[in-house]
Design a binder for these strands. Sequence first.
RNA 1: GGGCGAUUAGCUCAGUUGGUUAGAGCGUUUGGUUUACACCCAAAAGGUCGGCGGUUCGAGCCCGUCAUCGCCCACCA
Length: 1061
Amino acid sequence: MNEPANEIPKQYDPATAQEKWATFWDENQLFHSQPNPNKKPFCVVIPPPNVTGALHLGHALNNTLQDITVRMKRMQGFETLWIPGVDHAGIATQAVVERRLLEEEKLTRHDIGRNALVQRIWNWKEQYQTRIINQLKGMGCSCDWTRTRFTLDETCAKAVRYFFFNLFKQKLIYRGKRLVNWDTLLQTAVSDDEVFHETITGHFWYIKYPVIEPKPDEPKYVVVATTRPETMLGDTAVAVHPDPKTALNKVISDLKKRLAAAPEKEKYDLQKELDETENRLHNSNNSNNSNNSLLEHLQIEHLQILARMATEGRCVMLPLANKPIPLITDVWAKPEKGTGCVKITPAHDPNDYEVGKRQKLPIINILNKNGTLNENAGKYSGLTIKKARETIVADLEEQGLLVSVEERIIELAHSDRSKTPIEPFLNDQWFVKMDQLAQNAIDTVKNGEVKIIPERYKKGYIDWLSEKRDWPIGRQLWWGHRIPIWYCDGATEKEIEKAFAGRNDISWQWDSENNVWWICSQTEDLPENAVPNYKIVQDDDVLDTWFSSALWAHSTLGWPEQTPELNYYYPTGVLITNRDILTLWVARMVLAGKFNTGKKPFHEVFIHPKILDKYGEGMSKSKGNGVDPISVIAKFGADALRFALAYLTTENQDIRLTLDFECPYCGTIVEQTKKNRTQPKIICPKCGVSFRTQWAETESDKMLAEGPMIGERFEVARNFCNKLWNAARFVLLSLQEPQLNESGKHQNHTEVHTENHFLEDRWILSRLATVTKNVTESLETYRYADAMRFLYDFAWDEFCSFYVEMVKSRLADETQKTQAQAMLIFVLNTLLRLLHPVVPFVTEEIWQRLRLSCVGFTGGSFTGNDFISNDFTGNDFVKFAKSIAIAPWPVADESAINSEMENQFKVFQELLRAIRDVRASRNVPPKTEIAFSVRCDTPTATLLKPMEPYFLSMAKAKATGWGEAVKAPVLSSTVPLTGMDVYVDLSDLIDIAAEKAKLEKEIAKLDGFIKSKESKLNGDFVNKAPVTVVEKERQSLAELQEQRQSALDALTKLKNLKTVQ
RNA sequence: GGGCGAUUAGCUCAGUUGGUUAGAGCGUUUGGUUUACACCCAAAAGGUCGGCGGUUCGAGCCCGUCAUCGCCCACCA
């Protein structure tokens, strides 16, 4: 930190700065927060990452955005707390540990038992929590690490118990037999949200069910179609629509309507569908010769007969099981689908379950939890589903009951966790009644109490909650919060009352279906003998992970205790998260927050874009396309990572990142492909040496050098950080030079500059104030990309390319030096603070150096703002704060904003660019000084004349004349600009042909503009457009005509010149 | 089937309430080691704003429609 400024390296070294300042922040507890009545609170809770695995760039984005907001708020003077933590992620984490157990030790969880498995998951959790926290720290996240929480820790566990108990006591928790999505591999129920559908080629089997004692005019068989023949063993009815003809006609008319309105490309399919459906309605005489009984069964008359038979209470024989099951009528049987008859398997299909309930059918479960068939499957019991299916199909065929088999594309439900097919399975399950809870959460958003940004996500949130589907909260897992229910069999209510007399932390209910008591305990686990003479048993299951994460905003602050933290920080400020979990998590947080605390959990929700890979796919652990932010940091630095991500966070667009590997030995870029992205090591195609990736696990792979992930967006961001670094390096070097004290040394310069040397100062201060305003507004409304653009453009194009360049000559002038230095300090200091939330390390590194350089510096005075006050001295700056992280956020000095002056500066920039363009296009050697003159009005001349030294230093061009009387030198290049013509004297460097060509092109271009403007001004435009707009157009036209004239004059002159020569 | 988003330069993306000649980075071309920076500097070329229609004096922006792509939800015996 104390190295002399002239030893500042030319390149910013992120690794050193990161290490140094992370430690510094930590040691000084800058991010530790506690309730402070003198300040306003601002709190953010992290969306706790799953301990399943390490973070990827999606998390990096999420946490970068949070950190930007949090750091800004902290600088703005809020008592700011960002609570970190991780989520136990029940299913996912248990699954990953179980999978490894199986792979590495060939053991299942049943082999090692509940306690041993849970212990192993804890070990896993410790390992990954550490890794995750280190990743967050590596990114520079300014969390209060002393308050790190885990959804399964004691504080959270207590909150979960209280939440459950209160719901239970209010009878909002119930248990019922419900059809759940059963994962036969993990042997657990998974929620609808944890199911994905995969398109596979399956089969559609048409099976005959013999009619019992058919009358002569009746069919001998009912044909049903199924994709899952094995479930027939659980059939308890065959259904047909009560009025198939009417229903079919309705379908046909709907189809016709759709066909009429359908876009062209869908018409063919719809027409086909319509034809097929209509065929069912009419006797298809053309096919009556074939003996295909299937076609016959599709006819509507057939269905009508069956419907009649059903009302008569007739039965069919269930093949293989050989038992009669009723033929029933139910609207669920769609006459247009399948054969129009549908087998009803209430225990293994959600729709059939509903039918079964309606029709009071028996419910026969044929599955064991491990996915084999149970004793209800008769001779098929013990077989796996797959094997059973094969056997049953073979048996049916042998008995002549299989009509036909079709190939069919089906969407098969799979478990997101195990990737195995889901079986609908009847199971006992705990539910939370959602009715009122959901309504509260809807109202909270509808009435604007919680604001969702961007607003379009509101709809999804409200729609989802509006379904008010009860929330299944049990999971057949070992990793999680155990359900705090104990079953007591046989006791009387009196005995229970006696056992828990005087306890208000115990609540019980009678389960009339199973004839058992449910005893819920708010805090302590109940011993077996809690009810004398009876043995009570705790429920085996654990709670859904979302049940605990729903409490995150208040459980992390100590609820149910009324802690000072809860009273001070709650409701939290903003929740920044991903759209995927808007319903699963955000909605449930709102309802749980409202239920438990009576208050909303946060004021705002910001939904940020998703990180996609080069194929447009979201990053995920399972796909292997998740890139570890640490590997980006290793190559580009944390600041570059953060800046790049924030720069890409726009409102509508997901963030697509093309990343590739870089060979650590020869620097060759190895494209990341779907194949190599999951490999632990990759062989460089050029040098042939292997390097490791983030997936390296074996010791030998880990020994290899790592091939970093590179991407254009990160390079841009790294370059920006380096640009900032070098601008600061320039400032620091200029401060370090001995103060000039020999008077008279630069008197000439002083004279030249005196009149107007403040133009660029006033300009940069005006721009700085505007940028301060824009950045603050953007960040406060979560428009991160806008803020980054403002900062990037200002820092690079205005501060570096213009201000710093211009100030160079003043630094060489003793009489102006102090003022210039003070300006540099002021602008850089403000810029650093504006940038700090997004690039914390490089700004801290520079800021600390700047502070030291300012010791003893006494600057000139000028109108400043909040930080510097009217009488800025470097000493104040040094005293101010020990870290930029707690320095005050800049407040825009609105009085410094002067748009007229900014426009004047633009004239200077335009002129400078025109001269540089002439130089470049005429290949004027860089060292050759050229002369130029400008024909313009007097105010412009007055404005620009004092800038002469800058034309010299920035374009190596010497001004020879300004004003209306200026005439073009003979051999010159003329550039017509708005309101002025610049003549660059080229003498022997001139290429007359090229000049003429250029002017002709220019004239043609101007002619085009002029023509379009003239026609515009001759039309209705003049009458209908606002006066100001018309006036603007007129002025613009006049300017264009003026420019054209100038170009024409210059061209004529050149032509004459040629004839003379 | 329902909902949401996108389509702008070779690539990746900005583009505020409709208003002069549509911007940036990368890439390309030209010229540069100008004392902060080659992770740099100066400059150039490059676009019928997916198609069609409409509203308007005026449309990248508003409306309709078609096409293509992506995401979410629901359903599919």
